[in-house]
Deep mutational scan, measured.
Amino acid sequence: ELELEEVDLYRMNSQDKLGLTVCYRTDDEDDIGIYISEIDPNSIAAKDGRIREGDRIIQINGIEVQNREEAVALLTSEENKNFSLLIARP
């Protein structure tokens, strides 16, 4: 049973970094989820404190993420200042 949490992050300008590194968990081929492998200690996500390494990203801004490229594109989008992440953890 996964616990879901919605985390809203806000950046003042497009130079601010959310600070999330995303990856696949390669140990299970059936698991195509996108996971947070690293959080930059000086980033918006780290200061917010709710997202943890190992969390799975389900949605970004209401869009279900299917692959790492999509997640990276959404997280690094210059147009977005508000990010709503739906994350899951066991």
Rank of each mutant, 00 (worst) to 15 (best):
D55E: 02
L85F: 04
L75N: 01
E53N: 10
E29G: 12
E53K: 06
S77F: 15
D31C: 10
M12Q: 10
Q59C: 10
G62A: 07
Y10L: 15
Y10M: 14
I34F: 08
E3Q: 05
I57A: 01
Y10F: 15
Q66V: 15
L2S: 14
L2R: 14
E78K: 09
D16C: 14
N67D: 13
V65P: 11
A88W: 05
V22C: 06
D31M: 10
I87F: 03
Y35Q: 15
I58D: 07
I51Q: 00
L86H: 13
R56C: 04
L2V: 07
L74N: 13
I34W: 10
L75S: 02
E29C: 08
R56S: 14
D28C: 11
I60Y: 01
I51V: 12
G54P: 01
Y10N: 10
N67G: 07
N13Y: 07
V7C: 00
I60Q: 00
L85M: 09
D55F: 03
V7W: 01
L75C: 03
I34D: 00
E1C: 03
S77L: 08
T26I: 07
S14D: 13
I58M: 04
P41D: 12
R52F: 09
E53G: 07
F83I: 10
E3S: 09
D55M: 06
S43C: 05
E79Q: 07
D40I: 10
R50F: 02
A73W: 04
T26L: 07
R52V: 07
S43M: 04
I39K: 02
V22R: 01
D16P: 04
N13L: 05
E38C: 09
A73R: 09
E69I: 06
A88T: 06
V65S: 07
A73P: 05
V72W: 13
N42V: 09
E78R: 08
G49F: 02
D48E: 08
A45K: 00
D8L: 13
I36C: 08
P90W: 01
D40G: 06
I39C: 05
I87Q: 01
A45F: 02
T76Y: 08
L4E: 07
L85S: 01
L75W: 03
D27S: 11
D16F: 05
L9E: 00
G62N: 14
S84Q: 14
I87N: 02
N82S: 08
S84G: 10
I36K: 01
T26Y: 10
R56E: 09
E64I: 03
E3F: 15
T26W: 02
I32L: 13
G54K: 05
E64H: 04
Y10H: 06
T21Q: 08
I36R: 00
D8I: 03
Q59H: 06
S37P: 02
L4S: 15
I34E: 01
S77C: 12
R50M: 02
I63M: 06
Y10S: 15
N82R: 08
A73S: 10
M12A: 07
I51S: 03
K81Q: 04
K17Y: 12
I63Q: 11
E6F: 03
K81M: 10
G19I: 00
E69Y: 05
I32M: 02
Q15K: 12
S37I: 09
K47G: 14
K81A: 14
G19A: 01
D55S: 11
R52D: 09
I60M: 08
I44W: 02
G49Y: 03
E6Q: 04
E6G: 10
T76F: 11
A88L: 04
N67C: 13
E79W: 06
G19M: 01
D16N: 11
L85D: 00
L85N: 00
S43P: 00
Q15G: 10
E64C: 03
Q66C: 04
N80R: 06
E29N: 15
S77N: 10
Q15S: 10
F83H: 08
R52E: 15
Q15T: 05
N80P: 14
V65C: 14
L18P: 03
R56L: 12
I34S: 07
N61T: 01
E79F: 12
D28A: 13
E6N: 12
D55T: 03
A45W: 03
K81R: 06
E79C: 09
E69C: 14
N82V: 10
Y24V: 15
E64L: 04
I63K: 05
